[in-house]
Design a protein around this nucleic acid. Sequence first.
DNA 1: CGAAAAGCAAGAGCGGTGCTCTCGTTATGG
DNA 2: CCATAACGAGAGCACCGCTCTTGCTTTTCG
Lengths: 227, 227
Amino acid sequence: MSAAGVRARVRAEMTEEIKAVARRHLATDGANLSLRAVARDVGMASSAVYRYFASRDDLLTALIIEAYDAVGATAEAAAAKPADGDADRFLALSHAVRDWALADPHQWALIYGSPVPGYQAPQDTIGPATRVIFLIAAVVESAYRSGQVAAGPQPTGRYAEELAEVAARFGPDVPPRLVGAAMSAYFQLIGAISAELFGQLSNSVDEDRRGFFEFQMRGAATFIGLP
Amino acid sequence: MSAAGVRARVRAEMTEEIKAVARRHLATDGANLSLRAVARDVGMASSAVYRYFASRDDLLTALIIEAYDAVGATAEAAAAKPADGDADRFLALSHAVRDWALADPHQWALIYGSPVPGYQAPQDTIGPATRVIFLIAAVVESAYRSGQVAAGPQPTGRYAEELAEVAARFGPDVPPRLVGAAMSAYFQLIGAISAELFGQLSNSVDEDRRGFFEFQMRGAATFIGLP
DNA sequence: CGAAAAGCAAGAGCGGTGCTCTCGTTATGG
DNA sequence: CCATAACGAGAGCACCGCTCTTGCTTTTCG
């Protein structure tokens, strides 16, 4: 009847419902969720799910993309808020990412944990995956444009050239050092959150993990040279 | 016959063989290796494996402990070599850990990747897990004892007290800041290697990852205050 | 309009998994 | 020497991912 076609709309709704149920299972079973169990919860035969996702890995890929988008949106919202300087903006962004990770550790593990064995990240995921690092880079670039970035160690050697190539994507005259520092800060962010989530803080920092996280991120900001 | 008992010795050998085969499977299948497949390779019924390991998770735990021991031993060997100052010792240690991880990414993922869902790290693993961070702490403490550590940001608040408690385990008068910095450096090390191994460097630093890694670790050393 | 085409859901089935239980055998220690 | 405990193998249970076939419904097009 409708121009869009009933079938297409129903298909889209069905796809969303499967993903929603799968996301729920992800929260309890992690990456080894069972496609059959998801199908049961949705109320259809397991074979019918294959009309919507070519394989279990394809379903996981859809969840991965959604997770990247979710954490990216959260980080963007935090970075958009008014902040007292670029260092504070970076800290706010970091806390937003950490809060998101704490709220749903399995989603975090899905995108930043060890890759699912036998699973190769398809092209669809590399776009959404870069949102957070681009945000950090934007903060760093903004600070640099306003001339507020302190000096720091210069990269040298072959990797410095690679950093320069990446820097060229952001604009002219962006020093490779800033790109390197931004990437390093990004990996520190991911690493600090993963360490906390994966239990590496047990028996050392148990009460005030948020404070210790901020301590680490302040170090990262200093390394970049943020004011 | 023998005092030790034939059975006990055979049992120990059998346990080792199962672990060896499982380690081989780990290199190809990752953490979702199949106990049945391991049993087939060993040449026994899958049910017989349960005489040696109570469950598949128990087998994985054994592999985890071995992996922690292996990376710990590697790091210790690197840290024991003569070095040109404590910063260089830290760098050597870092490179050793990275080299080990590159040589066997699945073992790395097993211990530093996302925890296997439904798998709770047993007590047996927390001892071996602390070897590397203790090594870093030892380097930092040695530098501190010789009065060569530069000043740095002071931790404040509740987590600072927790760091002080950890510091007390190392000896009197160890500043909490050093413990925090050492832990931060440790997480940077883990995070940088995981980022490289889990594909986060694709399309940015592809040629000289070793150089970029050293750039990051130099930053960590500076944050600690190593000379 | 009506037939052909395409999309869809369900069921059966294949080979695989972790794990348990039983049963015959073999080494161990009182 | 013999009861006991450890052992290996096999059958079996419930589950898994995935495929194929079979009917049915919607869409598309001559």
